[in-house]
C-alpha cells in the first residue's frame, strides 16, 4: 500500500505537465491532477499491478478531464478565446513567437488527437502504452497522431527549414 503511494507520488510531476498541456491553464490543470490523485488514492486497493502504475494514473486523468469537459458543455461553458486558432502566418523566424503559435494550435486540436499527441511527444510514452491508456487499438492511436501532426503543420504554417537552406 505504501509502495503504491510512493509510486503515485513519483508520477505527480509528469501528471502536472500533461494536465497543463491538455488544459493550458495552471489552475484547471492542478484541479485535474488533484481529482486524479484523490481517485487513485481512494481506489489504490483495487489496483492490480499488471502494468505500470503510471499508465493507470494517466488513464484516470484522461477520464476525469473528459468528464469535466462533458459537464462544461452541458453548462454551456465559455470557450477559451485563445483556443480559437488565428489564421496561420508563416513564422518569420523560429523562437518565442513560433512557440506561442504552437501553444494555440495545440489548444485548437480535437481532444482525442491532443490526448494522443501529448502522451507520445511530451511524455515520451511508447505507442503501446499510450494506446492502452486511451483504451484504443494501436492503429487508431497512430492515425490520431498523424492527424494531430498534420493539423499542427497547417495551423503553424510549417516554417521553412532554417538550417539546411542551400546558398547559391
Amino acid at each position: 500500500m505504501v509502495d503504491v503511494l510512493h509510486e503515485i507520488e513519483a508520477a505527480v510531476p509528469a501528471l502536472r505537465r500533461y494536465a497543463r498541456a491538455l488544459t493550458r491553464d495552471l489552475d484547471r490543470a492542478d484541479d485535474l491532477v488533484q481529482d486524479c490523485l484523490e481517485r487513485a488514492i481512494a481506489r489504490r486497493g483495487l489496483f492490480r499491478p499488471k502494468g505500470p502504475i503510471r499508465a493507470w494514473l494517466f488513464t484516470i486523468l484522461v477520464n476525469v478531464h473528459r468528464n469535466n469537459l462533458r459537464g462544461a458543455r452541458r453548462r454551456g461553458d465559455m470557450v477559451d478565446l485563445e483556443a480559437i486558432p488565428e489564421p496561420s502566418v508563416p513564422a518569420p523566424q523560429p523562437g518565442h513567437l513560433a512557440l506561442a503559435e504552437l501553444d494555440r494550435a495545440i489548444g485548437a486540436l480535437p481532444l482525442e488527437q491532443k490526448e494522443a499527441l501529448l502522451l507520445v511527444t511530451l511524455e515520451g510514452l511508447p505507442y503501446a502504452e499510450a494506446a492502452s491508456i486511451l483504451d484504443i487499438p494501436l492503429g487508431t492511436l497512430m492515425s490520431r497522431l498523424g492527424r494531430a501532426r498534420a493539423t499542427l503543420k497547417t495551423l503553424t504554417g510549417a516554417p521553412s527549414e532554417p538550417h539546411l537552406r542551400t546558398v547559391k
Binding site: 510531476p13 502536472r16 505537465r17 512557440l99 504552437l102 511530451l122
Partner: peptide
C-alpha cells in the same frame, strides 16, 4: 514539433 512541445510544457515537471 516534438521538440517544441517539450520546450513549451516540459518545464512544468520541474516546478
Amino acid at each position: 514539433q516534438t521538440d517544441a512541445i517539450r520546450t513549451l510544457y516540459g518545464p512544468v515537471a520541474a516546478e
